[in-house]
Design a protein around this nucleic acid. Structure first.
Lengths: 209, 209
DNA sequence: ATGCATCACTGCAAGTATGCATTTGCGCAA
DNA sequence: TTGCGCAAATGCATACTTGCAGTGATGCAT
């Protein structure tokens, strides 16, 4: 949370603009409502042109919540062991961290208020899950290809296919949590909340196979 | 395929307008390209106002492909047996039929050309899968609640939760197919193409559990 | 310090999409 | 057949979103 390295001026101004837009968007949305807050007003409040707004955020809702594009760090990927027996659990946890790097804003209380008042804002989480799954699929695919057990693959399926489906399976408990009525979009998904879903997944898999 | 009952004039005109819009959209998109075909042009060609276009289609792409909103018929749901041992397979097939009722247009060859030339059009299939999953989840939830074995549920999870996760699991092979490089968006998913994915799913589940 | 390449920002234009109020035309019953 | 209720269609206003071209500030090498 401390300003670690003195970023180059260009980077710093970019971060400032991002922050100003997010701050303006969240603040205005809380004061006047989401639908009443126009991109034009947000941009004006942040001191940039409306066109610039869309250079920072795809959609208005992302600015209000302070969402960034998911990114998969190589370091995160390297912590995966494809030979461990809880591979699905590992991938689930990785998916969570990737999808939740998306959250950039700092003011949790305000985000909570906003989502409580405008539940539609939370819908964007599913989009980020889709993006996270795509990123992680590619990463896991590379890992499996390097592993002798997985590289061979089964009948007609290679590591790419196995990775894609593994990640989809691992995504199920997360999607399950996201769509739960009592899902907390602000806190996201922790080991605590993911655990029961993974258990249910395994219970069902045993029951149906 | 025969014009069964002489629909009331109102219904018939509605169907005609739908057809005219779809026909215009597909035809114009094929001639001049998707991006070059504006909603205004489609509406003009169909003889309605641009505003009316959006009373029939959420997005331009749906009009071009002739996509309708997914619907779950009670009859389809009643064919599900929650006690059979291939419940996941049953749900997968149901999901396919629900998501693919979305396809309404008739000219398969033209749709094939369009999707081949503009692959982005096929992206909408995932959206329809999400809607189909939501519909089917509700339906399966009702079925499970009536079944003594499922109604009890596991630790802390009721039939609603079980249904939601079962449907997500059943959706995995379909999502897998949709995201495959050689997926054919026009033919959709048949028993032939779904089978191998279900097999891979079961193989992986065995390997990881 | 100078010059150059890059990147952020901007204005403009076009197109997509939605809400609201109004009009038009079908369906139905007196 | 006349009139009423309702659904479809429309016009209008507004907002979201993207592409493109141009401008200016930043970063960097000389």
């Amino acid at each position: 949370m401390t300003t670690a390295a003195p970023l180059p001026l260009r980077e710093r101004k970019k971060a400032e603009t991002w922050g100003a837009l997010h701050e303006s968007a969240a603040s205005l949305a809380l004061q006047h409502g989401v639908d009443e807050t126009t991109v034009e007003a947000i941009a004006a409040s942040a001191g940039v042109s409306p066109r610039t707004f869309f250079n920072y955020f795809h959609v208005k809702e992302d600015a209000i919540l302070g969402l960034r594009e998911p990114v998969l760090e190589p370091a995160q990927l390297s912590r995966i062991s494809v030979t461990a027996d809880d591979l699905v659990g590992q991938i689930s946890r990785l998916l969570v961290t990737v999808a939740w790097t998306a959250i950039g804003g700092t003011d949790r209380a305000r985000r909570r208020q906003l989502i409580a008042r405008y539940p539609n804002l939370a819908r964007r989480h599913m989009d980020y899950m889709v993006k996270a799954e795509r990123l992680v699929s590619q990463g896991i695919s590379g890992l499996l290809a390097q592993d002798p057990v997985w590289a061979a693959g089964a009948e007609g399926f290679g590591p790419e296919e196995a990775a894609r489906m593994l990640v989809m399976i691992a995504g199920v408990p997360i999607r399950f949590n996201i769509t739960s009525a009592d899902f907390d979009p602000v806190e996201g998904i922790s080991a605590e909340t993911l655990g029961p879903s993974l258990t249910l997944l395994h219970d069902l898999l045993r029951k149906i196979s």
